[in-house]
Amino acid sequence: MFRFAIIFAAVLCAQDKPSGIGKPANAEKLRALDITVFPDGKGLPAGRGTAVAGKLVYKEKCAVCHGDHGEGREKQYGALKGGMGSLATAKPMKTVGSYWPYATTVWDYIHRAMPYEHPRSLSSDEVYAVTAFVLNINGIIPETLELNERTLPKVEMPNRNGFVPDARPDIRSKR
């Protein structure tokens, strides 16, 4: 019997059989908890907004830190626009417009982390609208383009192909 128990335990381990720790996740709670948006649009909720609408939301909730036109304020409140063509120069300017590879990341970040003092207080429509505004001041989309869960993933960001995998160790040191 004892030997049988040992074999049984070994089989359990080998099969990665769960030990019963933890409880099943509630599907409804999971939907509320899961805020991750992927580049292909997975995770985006239904909603819509244009830069025209976004300008009003931005003025009320974002401009105090990022400036009236997304120009930023001091080093800590980074500019949201500009810097195109600067990445290979001595003074690169990394902004949403010049640096970020995916528009979905803009939506995800505004939704999860902004406004800084009250994150996740914007409605989905407001997030689409502010995202459209930020992309528009960078000249990436026209003012009237409606962003929604289908059009946002199709927006092509200027630095889309600017990222390469980790190439390290890339330094050959000499003694």
Partner: peptide, 20 residues
């Protein structure tokens, strides 16, 4: 996910303008 902190920051901009 290509989150903000793995794209907009914590990426290593090389002299040629590409980022690791």
């Amino acid at each position: 996910a290509w989150s903000a902190k793995e794209t907009g920051s914590y990426t290593d901009l090389m002299a040629d303008g590409k980022s690791q």
